[in-house]
Structures are given as structure tokens and as C-alpha cells.
Nucleic acid binder design. Structure first.
Lengths: 221, 221
DNA sequence: TTTCGAGTGTAACAACTGTTACACTTTAAA
DNA sequence: TTTAAAGTGTAACAGTTGTTACACTCGAAA
């Protein structure tokens, strides 16, 4: 297989590092799923490395009563919960559902072990990806640990300003944002309204601007 | 260095796997901290692998206003936030504070990279540990995502019954448990009282018993 | 341009949790 | 055994969030 014909999934998560991740004789299989199919369910055994090679999926935690807390949307190419392959209790912690038609690459665990020891670039990517996942989860945990809605908004806004500057764009509607925060949509709207009324922030469509940074930081409970 | 004189920290996180984790010529340094010293602060650069080799520490998230959300207590020997060594934004996500006098082993990043490729047992341990950390965080996230206190109690209880059977022991007092759930102590006490009054659970000292498993599951919001 | 649906703003009320305070019980040390 | 400290139970009230409902705005498609 030469580089020109390498499929998209060989790029793993970083398109710039598409070389030397996988050897010529890699053992793998590919399975296709339709839109809205469950790809994995919370509790499913995780006995191989799964990489989403086309389409996109959403992962959701399910509290046993059926309530959902949206976690994130994953777009190909990206591995799915790779950390769990090596955990003592290797079961999927979330539901994974296709939001488009998707294809998933499967590499058996022993084959992954071989890759780890023979392909340094693969190992580096694997470690880096898992490390970033851990940071994502830690960040999410920190957000959820803030008790007031205004506090969550403040935390999120400060994070976005650090990334994008002031003003900045939020590409989610209120319903999605409320789901991300784990709160009810009208409650989020109320908190936003009050923060606008207090002269802390300004909102035009998807553009948000901090007006009073001091007051904003006081909201971080 | 022969095996009989291997120090405790060579056992890493699993005392049964003390062989072949580290080579003879490992480059490292050790630093000591007093009780209540900060070992790391949220935001500190993480440029090496740190392993707690004696004593114990607690990790806490700090919301910028000073409020604390207790995360966990770590007892030697165990690595400290090893995942962040390989993340793109390699900063500590939590405060790490000694709750006893502690010693911390430091292995530089390039030395860790060498270990990963030359010591398969080290790599296996490292992967497994990070995987378990991810599961811990996911579990904590799931707990915090439950909105009602009774729901959190129910989730926690069901988890404990799966681990210990029914009845089971909770080795935390109400204050610690409330901190773990991220709620106020009297609120937790109230919810527990109501669950007892409703005949759902029974509590004697640290021993908890489920009486009505059906009602308990209905509390998982 | 019209129209429909998605998205947003808001209000009234219910439900839940936090705060503060204090009495009581248990534990461990003197 | 006595005593102080830690832990627990509980109440009253304040504060925040959820629920439900509905009007309004905006934008894309017909």
C-alpha cells in the first residue's frame, strides 16, 4: 500500500501524522452502520480498538431511567473510547449512536499490542489521544462541579475567550448549550438574560462578548 | 540494583508486577514534601512522570473562587496524573496536597519514552493505569450528572452493592460523602432520612442495606 | 413574499437544595 | 469515667432551578 492510496482512517486523529502508524500486514476488519444505529451500548465489552473512519457519531451517558446527558459528537477519523481497551473493567461507559451512516475499523487487542511495540508513531498518537481525552473529561467534570448556572456559563465563557479572544462565537443553540451544561433550557435562558441585564455580557446571535470581566469571575462559585 | 533491594516505588501500582518495570540505568530524582505542602497546583506544567512513592495525597479541583470539590485520595505507590504527560496542554488539572509527609519520584519525559519502547511491562502498566483513570473520571462524571441528591445516592448505592453485596459498608462520614457528591451536608442528611422513612434503605452506622430495590432504581433521574 | 419551523424570551409556579442554627449521639482521649 | 470533639438529625427559611406554557423573532424553503 503506498501513501497515495492510504485510506482516510490511516490518518488516525491527526492528518499530518499519517505515516508509519500502521504496518502493511495489519489485521483488521471494517463494519458499516446506518444512521441512528447503536454502534455500542453502555456496558458493551470493549475487546478491540475501534476507529471511526467515516461519518460521525454521538456519545451519550444514560442514567438507568432513560435520561440522557449529551457528552460529545465525534467525527471521523477518530478512535472510539480507546482507553477502555486496556482497563480492568473493559466495558463501554457510554452509548455510541450514528448520526450519519458510519464505518468503524476494528483492530484486535493483540494486534494493537504489537503496534504499540513496533510502531513508535502509533504509540505516540495513542498516548497523546488518551491524554487529551482525560483532559476533556477533567474539564467536563470541572464544569459540572460548578453548582450555579451562571457559574457554568462564566466558566465556559472564560474558556472560550482564552481560545478565541473577546468577542467570540458559540456554535451551539440554547438547547444544545443547556444539554452541555446539564440544565434546563429556560433556566439557561433566564440566567443569560440576567447576566445581560447586569451588564456582564452582550449577546448578538451566536456572538458573545464580555463587558465586565470582574463580575464574570465572581460568578465562578 | 538487585531485586531484593528494589525500593517500594519500583512496584508501581501493582505489587505483583514489580519485575522489569524499570531498567538498571533509570534516570530519576526524588523530592520530599511535608504534610499539607502543595505538591502541584492546578495549572502547573507537567513535564515528567511523577510517582508517589511514600505517604498519601489528596487531589482537589478548585473553582477559581476558592470552592473545593474533593476528588480522591491517593496512597503510595501510585503515579500522579500520568496521562497529562502526553497531552497537548500538559498542565495539572487539580491541586495535589500532601495529607502526610510524602516522597515523589520524578522521571523525565524522554526517559519515559525510552521506557515505553524498551520495557513492555512498563508500557502495559502505564496503559492499564491510564485506562482505569479514564474509567474513574467517567464514573465520577456520571455521578455528578445526576441532578437530584437522591439520584446520586441511589447511583452510589447500586454501585456499592455490585461491589460488596447487600448490605454493604460505606467508609465515609456524611461530610465526606456530601463532598463526594458535591452537595451540602444537611441536604444529604435530609435525603437519606427521607429514603429511610420511605422504606427504601436502612442505615446502621456505616452499614447500609437496600430494602426496596425497585423504588431505589426509580430515583435515578 | 409567504409560511412554517426552529430558536428564543419570559412568566408563574412547583420542587429541590443550600444556609444557618442547634440539639443530640457517638467516639476517642484524658 | 469524664469530657471534648466529631458526627448526625432536623427545622425554618432563602435561594436557585425545573416545569410548563405561550408569544415572539428569525431564517430558509416554497
Amino acid at each position: 500500500m503506498n501513501k497515495a492510496t492510504d485510506p482516510e482512517w490511516k490518518k488516525f486523529s491527526n492528518p499530518n501524522d499519517q505515516e508509519n502508524l500502521f504496518p502493511e500486514d495489519l489485521k483488521y476488519s471494517i463494519k458499516a452502520y446506518k444512521k441512528f444505529d447503536y454502534i455500542f451500548r453502555q456496558g458493551d465489552l470493549c475487546d478491540a480498538l475501534y476507529i471511526l473512519i467515516s461519518g460521525s457519531v454521538k456519545t451519550e451517558m444514560v442514567t438507568e431511567n432513560g435520561n440522557l446527558l449529551g457528552i460529545e459528537i465525534i467525527t471521523a477519523p477518530r478512535p472510539l473510547a480507546p482507553a477502555f481497551l486496556f482497563s480492568d473493567n473493559n466495558h463501554f461507559p457510554v452509548d455510541v449512536t450514528g448520526i450519519q451512516d458510519v464505518e468503524v475499523l476494528r483492530i484486535p487487542k493483540d494486534e494493537v499490542m504489537r503496534l504499540m511495540t513496533t510502531q513508535p508513531d502509533f504509540m505516540q498518537q495513542f498516548l497523546s489521544h488518551n491524554a487529551n481525552r482525560t483532559q476533556f473529561l477533567t474539564n467536563r467534570l470541572q464544569l459540572l462541579s460548578i453548582k450555579t448556572i451562571k457559574g457554568k456559563i462564566a466558566y465556559f465563557i472564560i474558556e472560550q475567550v482564552n481560545l478565541q479572544g473577546n468577542p467570540f462565537i458559540i456554535n451551539r443553540n440554547q438547547t444544545e448549550l443547556a444539554g452541555f451544561f446539564g440544565v434546563a433550557r429556560p433556566s439557561l435562558a433566564r440566567s443569560l438574560s440576567e447576566m445581560i441585564a447586569d451588564g456582564i455580557i452582550e449577546v448578538n446571535r451566536k456572538e458573545y462578548k464580555i463587558l465586565d470581566s470582574k463580575k464574570l469571575k465572581e460568578l465562578l462559585v
